[in-house]
């Protein structure tokens, strides 16, 4: 049967930063072909296909909260597979190989993580599950 694609509205102008992305204007309507958990979604816009940041897209029917898991304050253990240096105040800087707790998995690919007393956003693509549950 026909495949029904979710339509999303572009919230703000976006200029692509690598080859297979889409340039988008605020108000454009895109159809989502694939939602990658790292926050890049494969979209169709008119005759173009490419990746767009989920952080710039909102569902046509308003915020779709069913999709986004609730925060898990107990945390789930992940290991950093790549270092990242915070650019914004609410982000965390971590080195390669650090064990952290993921508290909230946001669809835009920026997860809320906790390391000791600190919490902040970290790119989900630089995290890998350890498979262990945190000891309470």
């Amino acid at each position: 049967g026909p495949i029904m694609l979710d339509s999303y509205r572009v919230v703000s102008d976006y200029s692509k930063s690598s080859k297979y992305e889409l340039n988008l204007k605020a108000g454009d309507l895109v159809d989502i072909v694939e939602k990658s958990p790292n926050g890049w979604w494969f979209c169709q816009f008119e005759t173009h296909r490419g990746w767009a940041p989920a952080s710039y897209l909102e569902p046509l029917d308003g915020p779709d909260e069913r999709e986004e898991p609730e925060p898990d304050y107990a945390g789930e253990l992940y290991k950093t597979i790549k270092a990242y240096k915070a650019v914004e105040e609410d982000e965390l800087s971590l080195e390669f190989g650090e064990i952290i707790e993921v508290i909230h998995k946001l669809l835009d690919g920026w997860w809320v993580v906790r390391k000791g007393e600190e919490t902040g956003y970290y790119p989900s693509m630089f995290l890998c599950r350890t498979g262990e549950k945190k000891e309470v």
Partner: peptide, 22 residues
């Protein structure tokens, strides 16, 4: 290739989106 998402982290939400979430 186009089949694989970009290797760089996606941008943080723009101001418009942050206002809507708040």
């Amino acid at each position: 290739s186009i089949k694989h998402p970009p290797q760089n982290p996606p941008p943080r939400p723009p101001a418009e989106m942050r206002r809507k979430r708040a």
